[in-house]
């Protein structure tokens, strides 16, 4: 996993597999340079026993393989910057995973293609509402796939021109609040 946005894509995929109809990708950057990545869903949730094992890379509920690397990788990358991962889940109601990063740490990964990740989730999961909430000291930005389809009177977001325009819309807003790939990832 080379970019922070790919972690969001990966965790959101778990949410959708867990039957979520609404998945929120959150990104909050504080004045102190702490970045919180959060995925919140209304899926089936995780029971206490499984929650205890979720950070174990050799535990998974899937039957296709023996490992579950998504959360352990996120945890490893957060801890590499002095951060951590917190998971709260309410069986039957949903799950919230928050990862804390310190953006001035040299080991932080670049933000990557956040708008592209949101777009893929929104296109490939037409029945779900995929939200993106970003907040920095420079402002905030929010978009949701259900709202986009309602406003533009579309049944889905498969059209290439719509996708390109929406990605530009998100990119422009992220730049306005200081969230560009380069700015968030401090590299010497």
């Amino acid at each position: 996993m080379k970019e922070l946005s790919l972690h969001l894509l990966d965790i959101a995929e778990n949410s959708l597999t867990a039957g979520a109809t609404e998945v929120s990708l959150g990104l909050r950057l504080t004045n102190a340079g702490v970045l919180f990545l959060k995925v919140q869903d209304n899926g089936r949730g995780i029971d206490v026993e499984k929650l205890r094992q979720i950070e174990n890379p050799f535990f998974t509920t899937r039957t296709t393989r023996n490992v579950g690397l998504g959360v352990p990788l996120l945890k490893q990358h957060a801890e590499m910057t002095g951060g951590k991962v917190e998971i709260r889940s309410n069986p039957g109601k949903g799950t919230e995973i928050t990862a804390r990063f310190h953006i001035w740490h040299p080991d932080i990964q670049p933000l990557g293609d956040l708008e592209g990740c949101w777009m893929l989730l929104a296109v490939a999961n037409n029945e779900a509402n995929i939200l993106l909430n970003c907040e920095t000291p420079g402002g905030s930005f929010r978009i949701g796939s259900a709202e986009v389809k309602r406003e533009l009177e579309l049944e889905d977001l498969q059209d290439a021109e719509i996708r390109a325009d929406l990605k530009a819309l998100i990119r422009n807003n992220l730049e306005d609040i200081g969230l560009t790939n380069r700015k968030i990832a401090y590299k010497k």
């Binding site: 996993m1 080379k2 790919l6 894509l9 990966d10 995929e13 393989r65 579950g68 690397l69 998504g70 990788l73 293609d113 592209g116 990740c117 893929l120 296109v123 490939a124 498969q158 290439a160 996708r163």
Partner: peptide, 20 residues
């Protein structure tokens, strides 16, 4: 497109965007 951790880490996002 398989988009679990293994797929994403191997470049499934680029593959899916290309296919679309």
């Amino acid at each position: 497109v398989a988009m679990a951790t293994c797929g994403i880490a191997s470049g499934a996002k680029e593959t899916m965007e290309f296919l679309m």
